[in-house]
Structures are given as C-alpha cells and as structure tokens.
Amino acid sequence: MKTNMLGIYDDENVMLHAIDKLQDGGVAVADVYSPFPIHGIWSRLKQTTRLPYATFAYGAVGAVLVFSLLYWMSVVSYPLKFGGKPLNTLSFIIIMFVMTINIGTLFTFLTYLFREKMFPGKKVELPDPRSTEDKFVVVIADIGSLSEQETIRIKKLLQETGASEIKESTVTLHEH
C-alpha cells in the first residue's frame, strides 16, 4: 500500500498558486480533488481529453448510418411513393439531423462513463471526503519512495504555500 501526502487548501486560488510553487520546486503533483471544476488545473497537470473527437466520430458515423438505413428502406427494400415525392428525398435530412444528435449524445454519455470507469452503485473511497464539500486536496504520490529530507521539504512547501492541513493517506489514487 502506497502512502500519499495530502495538502489541504481552503481556497482555490491559493491552491493554484501552491501547485505552481510545488512544480517550480520540482515536486510532482499527482492529482487534485476539488468540489467544483477549476480551470487552471488541467494545464498545470498537463491533462487533456479526447472526448470531443469521439463525439465527432459518433456523429459522423451516425449520419452515414441513418442515411444508409433511410435510403435502403425507402428506395431498395420497399419503394413506395408518398404524395408523388421522389423516393430518395431531401427531407431525409430532418431524420438524419435528429438521429445524428441522438447517436452522438447517447454514445458520448456512454464513452464518458466508460472512460471514467463509472457505473451505478460503484463504491469509491476518497483521500479526504471533504473535497466534495469545501476543501481542495493536492496529492503528492507515494512519499514512501522519497527520502526523508525530500518528504520534509515537500511538507514545508505545502505549509509555506498556505495549506490549512497536511496529512498522509493510504487511499489508492484514482487512475484514469
């Protein structure tokens, strides 16, 4: 079981400043738990997501698939004239438009859950449950592998940057 160090902050701006200081001091910040999204974090932790590309792919495949189905049903399988309109009509666009959104939305949602490894009833343990309430928790991973001097230095850095509390936790970090 790995031991992580938690620096707990009360204010998101203080915490963002602290991350900068820690990173300047050569300390790797493993993760940050917060009660709401903080926009400065992702660039600092160099995190990105490819979710929009997936959505685009679903939409594109969906549009093609829906058109193929409409074409096959109306033109190939059972060509039936309605009101003298052509079999392959421009008004397919309406169903294609809505179904592209339908497929894009549903699969984006499923991909989101899949990538987050989330499902109904999943049990999790947080390093500090107050991070869903009002605390901002900065995690320094696996301090057991660091020298004692280094651990003291990190602790001092956390203190200097305004952490209201510093503690150790053995809760496994949430990998994504």
């Binding site: 993760d31 940050v32 738990y33 917060s34 009660p35 709401f36 999204p37 903080i38 974090i41 992702w42 932790l45 995190q47 990105t48 997501t49 979710l51 929009p52 959505t55 939409g59 959104i101 894009g104 939305t105 984006t108 949602f109 989101y112 859950l113 990538r115 987050e116 490894k117 989330m118 499902f119 109904p120 009833g121 999943k122 049990k123 999790v124 947080l126 991070s131 869903t132 970090l173 949430h174 994504h176």
Partner: peptide
Amino acid sequence: YGAMSFGWVGNAKSWLRFETAALLLGGMA
C-alpha cells in the same frame, strides 16, 4: 445517493471530462 453518484471522485481529470461532456451534450442539445 452513493449508487446514483456512479462512483464520482472529483479529481482533476474527472472534472475535465465532466466539463467536456457537459459542454458536448449541451452543444448537441
């Protein structure tokens, strides 16, 4: 509520994906 929270942890990456997913679902709707 634990079951309904789908095992939400609220770390940096999950907020990033959350924000992106919300914007994508919203943008499509």
